[in-house]
Design a protein around this nucleic acid. Sequence first.
DNA 1: AAGTACCA
DNA 2: AAAG
Length: 221
Amino acid sequence: MFELELFSNASARPSLPTGVTRLEGFALEWQDALLAALTQVIAAAPLRHMLTPGGQRMSVAMTNCGALGWITDRRGYRYAALDPRSGEPWPALPEVIRKLAAAAGLAAGYASFEPDACLINCYAPGARMSLHQDRDEQDFGAPIVSVSLGLPATFLIGGLTRRERPLRLPLAHGDVVVWGGPARLAYHGVAPVVDGLHPKLGRQRINLTLRRAGALKLNGN
DNA sequence: AAGTACCA
DNA sequence: AAAG
């Protein structure tokens, strides 16, 4: 009775905030194609530690693919069509990523999610991402689709103000989180990644964050 | 490990 | 501009 209550409380799943969807294992069937595509993207646009406008080095190594890439440096946060390191456009968004994004969007209730930006975040053990909002996009009607690969991590997802305490959501290889609508501007982050060894990715976590950064097309598609 | 304060 |  007492122990039973404890057990049922401990195993109860925390309800997600309105507008947040977790798709466990959703990306597993795409994993091999995803990893092959990522290898090519990273070869063309290497992972690098960007600087915040305050001049501090981010612990997460980043690169991008797609028409637009999110960057940060002393001049600020923004999307750019060219990789500042090479002066060349970011690698094209691989087909497998487009398909995965559309499928995940659909599963979360977004009929036509067509990202134009894919931020690739690489977390070595200890790397983290403090709470922030994704607010550099031109239109907040499209959701954010986040794909986790490699080492597990604790995703932090809060509300629209920094004061609200974030929910701690364990994420494993293949999990996808989608947030949009009332949660589109939710504060979110990642707790420091615990060291470990993933069979396919080794000692790292890779996160793909898919977004519509530029203007939405007026007539769908 | 998590929470809070603080930083300019 | 503390996505530290």
